[in-house]
Computed example of a mutant assay.
Amino acid sequence: MASLQLQPSMHFNLFVFLCVFGTFVSGQFTNFNKLVLPQGVTGPESAAFGPLGTGPFTTVADGRILKWQGPTIGFVDFAYTSPRRTKQVCDGTRDPNMGPICGRPLALSFNPVTGLLYIADGFFGLLFVGPTGGLATQLAGGFKFLVGVEVDLLTRNVYFSDASLTYDIRDTTKPGFVPDSTGRLLRYNPHTRQVSVLLSGLSGGGGPAISKNRTFVLVPELTGKRILKYWLVGPKANTAELFLNIGGNPNKIKRAGRFGEFWVAVSTGFIPPAPLIVSQGIRFNSNGVVLQTVSFAKEFVNKTISLVQENNGKLYVGSRFTDFIGVYSN
């Protein structure tokens, strides 16, 4: 396991320079639409597109994974993570205490070659489900609060993250909640079926993302307000360094439509609490240079976001606190 000894970086200075001199590209993705969840359902925290662009698939608060079937049909049931789940008890629930019964999937990642959908569930760990959906199969359990997942299409290794060793999703809404720094980046090897701890001592969780050339993994620290780079190959293999400081709380990272670029969902004013939460998507390249910011403050008023997923030139934005996925286009 790598120790978290961050090396000096020029990326923060460059980030500050861009902020001060206002060189962000903004004002794009101004057209807004909603993919509305079924009545009474909330919490589309994550989304993913399947082989041939099907979907999006999304996770919701009542433990299901839903699939978008177009504006005429809308979202339909696709998969679930808990073997104890029943539609009568769980459908439409917003009670986080029902998570151990109904499940709470929080992140998705497709392998388009195999058609398998990998799932990080806050209560049931790392799972996968096949192209026909249904009850997911658990690959690894015993975690407190899994929040992110990413599959390597070549090696089929699965990188995933947990937010804490001490608290789960139910604790985050309790009065006086204080986040800790016990988060981890982990890797599941499908050949050995073993889980390895790559990084520990992370300040809050978020969704990791593998670089296009598979040389490193980016890991957000939600409460640490930064993104780390964990090297997979080369002279720095198995070490981590500071990649980018973020002015707000970064959540899931996803690869952008352009080679070597990423999007991260950022909510400013979330932790520590502020009177107003402002959410935005930040696009950056593999060198940590910020290329664009897009504000979602108008449509996600005082709400945190967890995901900015680009697909076919559109941005799909997910939040734990809405009953829709926001779709932004030019």
Rank of each mutant, 00 (worst) to 15 (best):
V290H: 02
D121H: 12
P235S: 11
V308M: 04
F270V: 05
L37D: 04
T42R: 13
I101N: 02
N157E: 15
W231F: 15
V89H: 11
S3L: 09
T30Q: 09
A48I: 00
N287R: 06
P83W: 13
D62G: 12
P51L: 05
N312E: 13
S46T: 08
R84A: 09
Y118Q: 01
K67P: 03
G247M: 11
P250M: 14
G201Q: 06
T304F: 08
L126H: 07
Q39S: 10
Y328R: 04
T42K: 14
K229R: 15
F29H: 07
N251G: 11
P100K: 09
G318P: 02
G281A: 07
G122T: 14
L146E: 08
G40D: 06
T114K: 01
L146Q: 10
K87Q: 15
T30N: 06
N330G: 07
V197T: 15
Q138M: 09
G205Y: 09
P235Q: 09
R156G: 01
P275H: 12
R170C: 10
L139D: 02
S3K: 07
I119L: 08
P131C: 00
V129Y: 03
K225S: 14
F123M: 15
L66Q: 02
R258S: 08
S161F: 00
P83Q: 14
P100A: 09
F160C: 08
V76C: 09
V264C: 08
S306D: 15
T132Q: 14
A240D: 05
Q88A: 15
L307S: 06
T72M: 12
N13K: 03
S164N: 11
R156C: 03
F124R: 12
Q309N: 12
D77R: 12
R104T: 01
T223W: 15
I210K: 03
L108S: 06
T81M: 01
G247F: 13
T223K: 10
N302Y: 00
T54Q: 10
V317T: 11
A297N: 13
V197K: 11
N33R: 13
G248L: 08
S329T: 10
L116S: 10
L186C: 14
A2Y: 04
R85P: 01
T59D: 10
G183A: 09
T54E: 13
L4G: 05
D168F: 04
G133W: 05
N13P: 00
W231D: 13
V147E: 11
F75S: 01
G176A: 13
L108Y: 05
F262I: 00
T166G: 04
N312S: 12
T268S: 14
L135W: 14
T114D: 04
